[in-house]
Design a protein around this nucleic acid. Structure first.
Length: 482
RNA sequence: GCUGCUAUAGUGUAGUCCGGCCAAUCAUUUCGGCCUUUCACGCCGAAGACUGGGGUUCGAAUCCCCAUAGCAGCACCA
């Protein structure tokens, strides 16, 4: 009896978490979620579940250039697929008034100023640790400039709000970073605005306003954490506890949203769930369960080391989940017809699951001719056993193969070390294409597979597969893993 | 270039803060064997790592220094 044994690996504890935590996952709605997002989404969820508290899904849609209206729904759906418990959903585009209000207050506190320098000019001054002329404007002047921005009196690029940090900061990335910008194009799908708050500003304001206690995100945000710290300090807010995990490389799969979008547009990919992509929906289509993704990601943890994601480890997790539930069927790749001479008619009964006989059997009537995997014959065996049927002697003459019935005894096949292979009756085999990232494999499968639409099964001696479509004139299956 | 972070087997991970119980954990992987009418699952066994060099110490994977490598940031993106 096989049962999924789950290795619960304890994540490292979080400081200041004993009275519960408030955490958030903050994706940008530019496309569906992928493996990289899953890490952040799941890790935060795991801590909220461990310590108790609140999980906020914050949609960070403050850059209209990177908003795909359809992605709002995709993100929600993908999060649900992952089985994450979301307690609150926040759209930043609903909160622009708040950002303006706090922007104004930051200016009043002397923590920000309106800069009307040309972009390139500012960049050069910044490199030289020199203040730009705007930096010395009075609070009143800045407030009035900010009002002008909001009133639409500036064109794109003509004005921005910068946070006053430290021009001598050894890291140029820290020096007077921007908090608001002006944008006329493209239009935001959800709101009408020309002054757009920037990520570091909205994140700081929202993390505080929403009561976020702990932030877990990639180390590409380390600099942002330091920048946001300035804003927290100006307002006198307590900062959350931060953890930055290392970069995760994923082999052999496209992760960049823009690349995926381009590939879909050009017809190279079938869609967001094309199995060559690293999206969660692509994994789902292939038959990877959300629990496996969750386990794999938890296993990786929050280490600061850069790692490379291992498909092997994911597959192992998935196999553990899927093996006990997947029904077994025969799939014969590249079928070759074989008439078995001198064989009695017989009805074979094969177990749906070898470890669970009570699930029942598949019925395979043998009436003389079977389909066999070409690859198996190319090994030139002298004796084979058709699984759950009988033994067959294989000989060769100038015409080709000759198949002769060679008795029912399993023990004889064992003794002869004959391979036990899958087969199908020639007159009840359905065309089936097994799609893999490396290409399609044509073959035939049992008629019983029709019942398995949408579920993951195991093609014996081939591997696990998810039955994607049974409606056409042939069945489409996606290879999951061995 | 500047700033910062990291460095344990093929992969992921524990141990590192508070040096000895570490001839280094667990999982995966690979290879044997058992079980089995699947090359699945299960069981047994084996293989495989502390980046390098100095130093402190009776003792270092753990502390210090240097080197090397990788990564991140240096956007009016998130």
């Amino acid at each position: 009896m096989s049962r999924p044994r789950v290795h619960v690996k304890e994540l490292p504890g979080l400081e200041k978490a004993d009275h519960g935590v408030v955490m958030r996952f903050a994706p940008n709605p530019s496309g569906p979620l992928h493996l990289g997002h899953a890490r952040a989404a799941v890790l935060n969820d795991a801590y909220v579940k461990r310590y108790g508290g609140k999980y906020i899904l914050r949609i960070e849609d403050t850059d209209p250039k990177r908003v795909d209206p359809e992605a709002y729904g995709m993100v929600i759906r993908d999060i649900e697929w992952l089985g994450i418990t979301v307690h609150e959903v926040v759209y930043q585009s609903d909160r622009f008034d708040r950002y303006y209000r706090y922007g104004k207050e930051l200016i009043e506190r002397g923590g920000a100023y309106v800069c009307t320098c040309e972009n390139e000019q500012f960049r050069q001054l910044k490199q030289k640790k020199t203040a730009c002329p705007c930096r010395s404007l009075s609070v009143e002047e800045n407030l009035s400039l900010f009002d002008k921005m909001l009133a639409g009196e500036f064109y794109e690029g003509e004005a921005s709000v910068r946070v006053r940090t430290d021009l001598d900061h050894p890291d140029p990335a820290m020096r007077d970073f921007p908090a608001f910008r002006i944008l006329h194009q493209p239009l935001h799908p959800r709101i009408d605005a020309v002054v757009y708050p920037l990520m570091n500003f909205t994140v700081a304001v929202d993390d505080h306003l929403l009561g976020v206690t702990h932030v877990i995100r990639g180390k590409d945000h380390i600099a942002n954490t330091r920048r946001q710290r300035y804003i927290f300090d100006y307002f006198g807010w307590d900062v959350p506890v931060y953890r930055h995990y290392g970069r995760m490389g994923i082999e052999g799969v496209v992760l960049s949203t823009s690349q995926m979008r381009q590939g879909i547009a050009s017809g190279e990919y079938e869609g967001w769930d094309d199995i060559r992509l690293g999206t969660l929906r692509a994994l789902a289509r292939r038959g990877i369960s959300p629990e496996a993704v969750r386990q794999a990601v938890l296993d990786i943890g929050i280490g600061e080391t850069d790692i490379s994601f291992s498909w092997d480890n994911l597959y192992a997790q998935n196999r553990m989940i899927v093996d006990p539930v997947a029904n077994r069927y025969f799939f014969v790749p590249h079928p070759v017809g074989a008439e078995i001479r001198d064989a009695p008619h017989h009805v074979a009964r094969a177990l749906l699951h070898p470890n669970e006989p009570e699930r029942g059997t598949r019925v395979l009537p043998f009436t003389g001719t079977v389909l066999l995997p070409r690859q198996e014959l190319e090994k030139h065996p002298s004796l084979i056993r058709l699984k759950d049927l009988f033994n067959v002697k294989v000989s060769y003459d100038e015409q080709g193969y000759l198949f002769t019935y060679a008795g029912d005894q399993l023990s004889e096949a064992r003794e002869a070390k004959a391979p036990i292979i899958q087969w199908l009756p020639a007159d009840c085999a359905l065309p089936c294409v097994l799609r893999t990232p490396e290409g399609d494999v044509e073959g035939v499968c049992e008629t019983g597979v029709m019942r398995e639409a949408g579920s993951v099964l195991q093609f014996e001696r081939v591997g696990f597969a998810r039955i994607d479509d049974t409606s056409g004139d042939r069945i489409t299956a996606y290879f999951t893993h061995r």
